[in-house]
Design a protein around this nucleic acid. Structure first.
Lengths: 159, 159
DNA sequence: GTTGATATTGATTCTGATTCTCAAAATACA
DNA sequence: TGTATTTTGAGAATCAGAATCAATATCAAC
C-alpha cells in the first residue's frame, strides 16, 4: 500500500488531521496536496490550471480554494498578499523559510534569511506563551540607489 | 481643528510630496489625511463612514480608496490583510511600531515590540543596501493552552 | 483676481477573486 | 455492502476595490 515517496509522509499527515476532524480524504484533496507540495508558492488559479491539465480533469475551482484554505488551517500552507488582489498560497514545507526586503520605489523584492532574527522571534513567542508554526516578515524601504529605480513619480501617479 | 497642531506638519509633508509630483492638495485629501492621522488603523469603508458623518458629506468611496493608496505610496500608510477580504490601512506614524503574535487556533492577536529584532532588521537591510521605512512582522502559532481556544475542530470545519 | 490647462472628484458601473448553493457523487464506518 | 455524512462541480452570488467619465476644483501664469 505504501509507495515509498516522501509524499506519503504529507499524505499521512493530511489523512491524520482529516480523520481527527471527521473529514474525508478525497482524490481531489490528495491531488491538490500533491501538486501543492511541488511548488514554492502558487495562486489558486494557477494550481487549478496545473491540475486541470493532468489526468484528473474533473476539478472545480471552488474545490481548489476550499482545499488550499484547509491546507492553511493545518499549517502546510500560508496565505500571502503581495499585490492587492491575488492571494498567493505559500508552501510552508517547501524550503527553508525566507523573509522579504521590498523596495517601495521600484518594487524590487529580495529574499533573505536571518537565523538571529528567528531565534529572537522564538524567544518573544515563548515569552507570550506561544508555540510558533511559521511567520511572515516583510521589510519595506528603498534601495540605496533608488534614483535608478523605476521613476517613482510615475509610480505615484499611476495610482 | 485649530492651527498649530501637529497635524500641520503632516499636511505640509503631504503638500510637499504632492507638489513634487504635480498632484493637487484637495479638501478631500486633507480631510482624509486628518481623519486617518487620528486612528491607529482603519478600513476604507470605516474611514468613509467617519468622514461622511462630518461636515463634508460629499465624499465618494472611490476617493477614499484613491487617497489611502496615495498615503501608502508616500509612506504614511501601510496596507495589511489579516483576514482575507478587508484591507486594513495602518497609520504608520500613529504610535511606536508593534508586531503581532497570532494564534492560528483561536485567532487571538497579541501585540508586541522587540527592539532587538528591529535592530537586526536594520542590519539585514543595510547589508542589502536598503534603507528601511517600515516593516511588517507576524508570528503564527498557537497558545500554550490551545485546548482552551475556540474549538479548532469546529474551526477547520467552518471552512 | 482671472484664466486655462490639468488633476480630481462622485456616481456609477465594472471587474475579478473568492465564497456560496445544492443536487449528485464519493467516502468512511458499521 | 449499506447508509449516514461529507464533499464535489457548476454556476450563481458576493463584495472589495478599480475603472469610467462628465463635471468640478486646483494651481500656476498671467
Amino acid at each position: 500500500m505504501h509507495k515509498g515517496s516522501s509524499l506519503n509522509k504529507e499524505v499521512a499527515l493530511l489523512k491524520n488531521l482529516l480523520t481527527q476532524n471527521r473529514l474525508k480524504l478525497t482524490q481531489q484533496r490528495e491531488a491538490i496536496l500533491e501538486a501543492f507540495l511541488k511548488v514554492d508558492h502558487i495562486t489558486a488559479e494557477e494550481l487549478y490550471r496545473v491540475i486541470s491539465k493532468k489526468k484528473r480533469p474533473q476539478m472545480g475551482l471552488a474545490t481548489i480554494y476550499r482545499t488550499l484554505n484547509l491546507l492553511c488551517k493545518i499549517g502546510i500552507g500560508q496565505q500571502r498578499h503581495f499585490d492587492d488582489n491575488r492571494t498567493i498560497y505559500d508552501n510552508v514545507l517547501h524550503k527553508k523559510h525566507h523573509d522579504h526586503l521590498i523596495c517601495n520605489k521600484c518594487e524590487k523584492i529580495i529574499e533573505f534569511e536571518s537565523p538571529a532574527i528567528e531565534r529572537l522571534q522564538e524567544e518573544m513567542a515563548a515569552r507570550h506563551g506561544f508555540t510558533l508554526s511559521n511567520h511572515r516578515l516583510e521589510l519595506f524601504g528603498h534601495c540605496i540607489d533608488w534614483k535608478n529605480c523605476r521613476d517613482w513619480q510615475k509610480d505615484i501617479k499611476r495610482k
